[in-house]
């Protein structure tokens, strides 16, 4: 199982090629790649900066749980889930998910499952900074 999963939470710049190369395999007919990017606007306001803080030890565990679940539920070969922490600028990459599978359908579904579950359960928090202040995303019911 372990050589089928690559999970990372890092303050270094994320690398799309690293994720792609990890999942690539001759037995696979397709690779899906989800790349999250920092948007320049939120709540009709110009975003100046995003900060991601994490409960790193638990975030790594939860990301690994998602990968294990994806491998159990979909006919895929490998999965990489990398997430950034710290300050990110517009256009920077907070998250990359790469999935390889013999057939594309499973790769698409597993990738969607992984990003949707990540957003619900992994202890990572986004703070959006504007010219006139900052807000914690999702923290205002």
């Amino acid at each position: 199982m372990k050589n089928k999963i690559s999970v990372l939470v890092t303050s270094e710049k994320l690398n799309i090629q690293t994720c792609y190369d990890f999942v690539k395999d001759d037995s696979c007919g397709g690779i899906t790649l989800f790349v999250g990017t920092v948007r320049n606007e939120s709540y009709q306001k110009k975003v100046t900066l995003l900060n991601f803080s994490t409960y790193k030890a638990m975030a790594v565990k939860e990301l690994n749980n998602i990968a294990v679940q994806a491998l159990a539920d979909f006919t895929i070969l490998k999965i990489a889930i990398h997430h950034a922490e710290g300050d990110l600028k517009i256009g920077d990459i907070p998250v990359i998910i790469a999935v390889s599978a013999p057939h594309r359908d499973a790769a698409f579904k597993a990738c969607q499952f992984a990003i949707d579950t990540l957003k619900k359960s992994v202890p990572i928090w986004k703070k959006e900074h504007f010219n006139d202040g900052a807000i914690w995303v999702n923290a205002h019911p």
Binding site: L118, V122, P123, W136
Partner: peptide, 10 residues
Amino acid sequence: IALIPPVSGG
């Protein structure tokens, strides 16, 4: 023990 407010990764 950790308090986990609503998460917002991704």
